Simulated scan of single mutants.
Amino acid sequence: MTLSRTLVIAGFLLSGLALAAVEWAARRPGSRIPTLGDVAALVMRYDVGGLPVGRLAILLFWFWLGWHFLAR
């Protein structure tokens, strides 16, 4: 395994851990941090002129995620 691949994997792991820590902090009683579900709901409500831009953004995000982790 090359050094750059190791750094990329470490970066993704650190990002995942940071996301988990923020979600954990958001679910504590009395927290003012929105949960990931609240943020996704807010994004999915966003539309411009009847075009569901937020839903398209979520769809493109899932496509990007699947393409990078499942395509080989």
Rank of each mutant, 00 (worst) to 15 (best):
E23K: 12
H68V: 13
S31A: 06
I58N: 01
P52H: 07
R45Y: 12
A18F: 10
L65N: 09
G16W: 03
A10Y: 10
A71H: 09
G66P: 01
L36Q: 01
M44K: 08
W64L: 12
V53I: 13
V53N: 04
A41G: 13
L14G: 13
V39Y: 00
R27G: 00
V48K: 15
T2R: 12
F69P: 03
M1A: 11
P52S: 05
S31N: 05
W24D: 09
M1H: 06
T6V: 06
L17S: 10
A26Y: 05
F12D: 02
I33Q: 00
L7I: 11
W24P: 03
W67V: 04
T2L: 05
L19S: 09
D38S: 06
L59S: 05
G16H: 04
R55W: 09
D38E: 15
S4T: 10
V22A: 12
F69N: 12
V8Q: 06
P29W: 08
G54N: 06
L7F: 14
G37M: 04
V39P: 01
V8H: 04
W67G: 02
W24H: 14
G66K: 03
R32I: 00
A21Q: 05
G66H: 10
W62N: 04
Y46E: 11
S4F: 05
Y46K: 13
D38V: 04
L51R: 08
A57M: 11
W64G: 14
P52A: 12
T2C: 12
F63H: 09
R45L: 15
G11Y: 03
A71M: 09
G54I: 13
A21L: 15
G50L: 12
G50N: 07
R27D: 03
R72Y: 06
T35Q: 02
G49S: 09
V43D: 02
W24A: 14
T6Q: 12
L13K: 01
L19V: 11
A40T: 04
L36D: 00
F61C: 11
L42P: 00
T35V: 03
G37R: 01
E23R: 03
W24T: 14
A41H: 11
G49N: 14
W62T: 09
R5E: 13
L51T: 14
S15N: 07
R5K: 10
T6I: 13
I33E: 00
V48A: 15
V22M: 06
L56S: 03
A25G: 13
L59T: 07
M1G: 15
E23C: 12
L65I: 13
I9E: 14
G11V: 03
M44A: 10
F12Q: 07
A18P: 07
W24M: 15
A71Y: 11
L19H: 02
V43Y: 03
W67T: 10
L65A: 14
H68R: 15
I9K: 07
L59H: 01
V53H: 02
L14H: 02
I58F: 02
M44T: 04
D47L: 07
L70F: 14
A25P: 05
